[in-house]
Design a protein around this nucleic acid. Sequence first.
DNA 1: CGAGCTTCGTGACAACGTCACGATAACCTT
DNA 2: AAGGTTATCGTGACGTTGTCACGAAGCTCG
Lengths: 181, 181
Amino acid sequence: MAVALSLLEREGVSGFTTRTLAREATTSTPAVYELFGDKTGVVRELFFEGFGLLRGCLDNLIDSDDPRADLVRLLEIYRSFIKDNPVLAQVMFSRPFSDFEPSESEVQAGSSVRVFIVEHVRRCTDTGAWRGDATDIAHVLVALVQGLAAAENAKRLGTTQSSVDRRWSLALDAVLDGLAT
Amino acid sequence: MAVALSLLEREGVSGFTTRTLAREATTSTPAVYELFGDKTGVVRELFFEGFGLLRGCLDNLIDSDDPRADLVRLLEIYRSFIKDNPVLAQVMFSRPFSDFEPSESEVQAGSSVRVFIVEHVRRCTDTGAWRGDATDIAHVLVALVQGLAAAENAKRLGTTQSSVDRRWSLALDAVLDGLAT
DNA sequence: CGAGCTTCGTGACAACGTCACGATAACCTT
DNA sequence: AAGGTTATCGTGACGTTGTCACGAAGCTCG
């Protein structure tokens, strides 16, 4: 898995082949097939691994007594995870390998991450009059962050760092202000 | 191109091969290569075609005297385009074909669409105290819509139609309220 | 009617996902 | 410690895909 992660991030989706993976792991392709069944199986494991790593990043968050500021920092961690692991994030949230489509139960892989986010949203909704249910808000925030991060990675969000950052904070401020009545 | 569009939407990314494309167009693969150079060339044309189609959908929008309501309807058209052409939207906004990465100038393909959106945002910012520049707001809105649509297509936004719709309108209402100070 | 250029079909090549087959290594039972 | 069962792995092969060389066919223009 370590070799797979490094190969994926180094060579991208198109360079990620069973043969090179086997070679870099100093073994042969059938060994890969024995362990993972499919190439899709390798991708699936990367998918899970990605959510584990993301969860690890989020654990670095230390809560303060300002729930909203904590939520903003949480979303910034989410953003930097996607920025630091662009290919892995694609595997998690997009379908770069056209024959890996996570089943409904596998989508639950992110449940630990989702719970973490919902909890931090709930800290906000508890201390004030926020609009909507905490789960709904979490979905909205995650979709927004992923949309922004996808645009940023595709260099579609702006040409200079400052314009990109400005749009990120505009988006986050606006949505949180709009949510917090 | 018509055959390519239909093949793409029918067979998905993994079924989209030069051989089947040539067969369905009742020709041979070198003919495809003569016209498009690469398989990437075909994908690139689909990319442009997609923005043309999206622009055509947006043209159905008839402006009223309520700029904000118009903007909401614009974003709903954007959403239904992505929902009606999921694979094409992936080609436009994601990288399902791992060796097609639009160059910076090709990203400008969406400029007509972008201009259209910025104009409708500006109608709002002109008639009221909105936060931020119209271009920034347009970027934020597009990112939000694409994030929500990607989540919806991946069945990640909710299990029932009503929860999905509820989250869509929560997101749009919140961000527009937050923007419109 | 014929020269030059564009377009297309046949066939081939390399790389990929996948697997059958046999060989090896590991483990458990006695 | 020995033998047998199972899990693991390497060699080689097959079908499919992107790609292209080569030659044939058609069109344009004199």
